[in-house]
Design a binder for these strands. Sequence first.
RNA 1: GCUCCGGUCGUCUAGCGGUUCAGGACGCCGCCCUUUCACGGCGGUAACGUGGGUUCAAAUCCCAUUCGGAGUACCA
Length: 482
Amino acid sequence: MSETRVRIAPSPTGDPHVGTGYIALFNYCLAKKDGGKFILRIEDTDQSRCSKESENMIFDSLRWLGLEWDEGPDIGGEYGPYRQSERLDIYKKYANELVEKGHAYQCFCSKERLDQIRKVQTSANRPTGYDGQCRRLSSEEAKSKIDNGEAHVIRMKIDRTDGAQTSFYDEIRKKDICYQNKEIDDQVILKGDGFPTYHLASVVDDYLMKITHVIRGEEWMTSTPKHILLYQYFGWDIPKFAHLSLLRNADKNKSKISKRKNPVSLTWFRACGYMPHVMINFFALMGYHAQDEEKFTIDTITKSFDFNNFGTSSPAFDFIKLNNLNGLYLREGSQEEFISYICQKDKDQADYLKSILAIIQERVDQDHPFQYWVETFFKRALVYSKEEFDAIKREPAEISKVLKDLAKYLEKLQVTNEQELKEAIMGFQEKSGFSSKQYMMTVRVSTLEKKYSLPLFESLWVIGKDGVTQRLKQAKDFLNQK
RNA sequence: GCUCCGGUCGUCUAGCGGUUCAGGACGCCGCCCUUUCACGGCGGUAACGUGGGUUCAAAUCCCAUUCGGAGUACCA
């Protein structure tokens, strides 16, 4: 039996996600249990969304949790590079190999045509997917188009022989999951910009990096047959697959946990004073069961690790339970541990505090002491009052509408500095239909709770775009319940 | 719509055909401790989605149905 090798393969877009920590934990524990290797691979194949800062935050967060990797972009390893953007030639080579073998083909269809196909399929209540137009192109035709400089991607050519199916065994569900090939789309594996899509990149890398177990979130289950097919087309051994159930929002809908409804960033949990071993214990409580006791550490999870111990239904991420756990650990720790916890927490928050202090220093007076200004920055649930909103001089319903639209608008935006955030918010005023004065007051009261508050954009930048969006929604909810 | 996955207290879960009118934890309620709050202790509340089978016996097996989730991108 070969050495166990597992990986966590996050995409460096935005803040490091709790789900990454959750999945990383179990990968890590399997590796440790088997005396194998835990690998960190950065999946930065989406040029438009990935950033270096995000990558660094992933490193920090994973280390904070105590999940140190054996091979990775920052420490190297035998099978590097571990950043997919540095492996482009490899993917290109394998994509071409598939074309030569007849398992993939060039596709020249425009975005517009693809959208059109999807639109027609959707409105006809038909399954969506590529219609296979370029599949019929001969290699000569394709070649001449390429020579003409026509833009193209490479798609998998799924074997659609009647009755053909693709299946895999899921270690957690303990059964074969089977798909009819005709249901599998001719997935793009190499994009127009020469970057691979996730599907190609992860299969190629998992193979080259000798990954033995793919432990990932359930959201990948439906694309697994594509991956299986890729392994088969290449003639490679297929690793074991285990799909962990998804963490869900605790509200009624129980959708996949998302930042729209909950804090999901590991940096947020850290800044809020949740301790890393508490997060670990909590993760283990979500769908893992190996003992009567609820206490879990990386060590006990490792020792008990078994795919039989995982639940198959998706748990809700319950903050009340998390808070309780954090308190439990805090209370039973030694005073030394408590002291270091407080110091650590303050250190994490020092920068935050510093940026707030910079704004409030010149404003503190007898009527408005330190606490008056600083309060709102440390609240998660804001406390609004109707009177503050009166200053806007518009109907609550109108204000609520603006808040909703603005939040939606901001959500989709990427901002990297205060100026951009300011421009984004200012830029929306015209769409709001409010006067500039009304609009600014709307933003102010919604985000800072009071009309008498700190310089707006400086404060908002400290709170951060996601925080601002959350606050706008809270304000909207407040107004709607009136 | 289509495909796949799932369904035990409000939440996380135990349960793998009889020992369970379903056990634990968090929450909630009550009592005790206590100058307050918290902690702690004690007690209570509350669940097998529905309908059919199989079986002497089903939360546990099978089928259907329903509800929930995921996927359905030149995002991961």
